[in-house]
């Protein structure tokens, strides 16, 4: 799946939570949204991207959210 497409989608989700003052809450909300609505292959693709690049194009708390997803997956494995 095209990574640009996924990054854009993730950043769009992030934009909705942009007004959230508490960055921790924002990141958790973004992470939950991705967990609830993204099919596993989409999630693993964006986690792979994070692992490879540090999530360069992910904005603000979106990067933290994907980082948390990456850590969860690593912990499970």
């Amino acid at each position: 799946m095209h990574i640009d497409y996924l990054v854009r989608m993730a950043n769009d989700i992030g934009a909705f939570f942009a007004s959230e003052q508490d960055q921790g809450v924002a990141a958790a909300s973004i992470r939950q949204h991705i967990q609830k609505f993204w099919d596993p292959r989409m999630r693993s693709r964006i986690i792979g991207y994070y692992n490879d690049t540090g999530g360069m194009d992910l904005e603000g708390p979106v990067r933290t959210a994907v980082q948390q997803l990456a850590e969860q997956t690593a912990a499970k494995a």
């Binding site: 799946m1 095209h2 497409y5 609830k36 993204w38 292959r41 989409m42």
Partner: peptide, 18 residues
């Protein structure tokens, strides 16, 4: 227990062969 693909995601996944 995991969510599946939405229509636009299906198109993306079709293009990458999955």
């Amino acid at each position: 227990s995991e969510p599946g693909l939405r229509i636009p995601n299906m198109f993306e996944a079709a293009l990458d062969g999955s």
